Simulated scan of single mutants.
Amino acid sequence: MPILDAVLLFLAGFLSGAVNAVAGGGTFITFGAMTLAGLPPIVANATSSVTQFPGYITSTLAYWHDIKHFWRGALLLSLISALGALSGALILLGLDNPSFRALVPWLLLAATALFAAGPWLKPAPKPEHEAAVGSLIGSLAQFATAVYGGFFGAGMGVMMLATLGLTQSGDYHRLNALKNMLAVVIAAVAILVFVSGGVIAWLQAIIMIPGGALGGYAGVWIARRVPQNAVRGFVIAVGLFLAFYYFDKG
């Protein structure tokens, strides 16, 4: 691997970890960096899932106090999420790179719009209730979100928080904890499928993961000095750049 590509990937991992800690949206950066480094879009997408996975775990552990009160009730949603992620990942592996490349700019535009709308999609606080499994509609919404997460993943957290807010009970922190728990399930299943399909670029992932860890730590420093709206604007700009890059390449 050229040294410049290695530096690009490490810095992308660092930026991804930092923006995830402040505003979310790090997937845009990891996916974009691997694309610019020459990886095929399916491989870049699958490898990005690996690089984001440690962050999902640490975010879940940070909410462990909340999760231990409702995890048994969330097992059904976890199973639904696993089935949805399996479906989405298998759909991805069923495509060839040219077919997926044609979808990527539209997926990026949709994910960028979703991310931009994120502040308005946060659920209203309902502190008197605990998170529950919810209705059939909630289960179907979670399945659809998990299919998307297994297939592409960018913007999945915003989408899931929005659907959980509409279909589940609980205050914001409980819903966010549930979202993080289900994101771990979705990512784990998708990664297992991608590994079995041989579409993970392990060298690139190994370079980016330490950068992501350092970026997550630095995100605390950034959050105290850079307005969240500025970070969100940066992520939206990256998403739009990547979308138009793929439109141009198409």
Rank of each mutant, 00 (worst) to 15 (best):
Y148I: 02
G94A: 11
V231N: 11
L175D: 00
N180T: 04
K179N: 12
Y148S: 01
G215K: 10
M160S: 02
L114S: 12
G170V: 09
L192W: 03
V184P: 03
A113K: 02
L192C: 11
V147M: 13
T145H: 04
S78A: 15
A188H: 05
L136T: 12
I200Y: 09
K122P: 00
G88E: 14
W71K: 10
S81M: 13
L39M: 14
A223I: 08
M208K: 00
L86T: 08
F10R: 07
L90Q: 15
P41G: 09
A177V: 06
V199K: 03
W221R: 08
V184Q: 11
H129G: 03
V158N: 03
R224M: 08
G216K: 06
A124I: 10
I200W: 05
A188S: 15
A82F: 10
I137R: 12
M159G: 01
A218F: 15
W120V: 02
S16M: 10
P2S: 14
K179W: 04
K122E: 10
H69S: 08
N20L: 05
P127F: 04
L192M: 07
L9W: 10
A85S: 15
F14W: 15
A85R: 03
L161E: 00
L15T: 12
G170H: 11
A37R: 08
A213N: 03
T30S: 13
G165S: 05
P127C: 07
G150D: 11
L90C: 07
W120T: 03
G84F: 13
V43C: 07
F100K: 00
V43H: 13
F70G: 01
W64D: 03
A223L: 12
L242N: 09
A230R: 15
V19H: 08
L107W: 12
D171G: 09
F234S: 09
A102L: 14
G73N: 10
L36Q: 11
A144D: 00
L39P: 00
L114R: 01
Y148T: 02
L79E: 01
V189C: 06
L79W: 06
S139E: 01
A223Q: 10
V193T: 12
A37H: 05
L114Q: 05
Y217K: 13
Y172V: 11
T35L: 14
K179H: 10
A188N: 08
H65F: 06
W221I: 13
T145V: 14
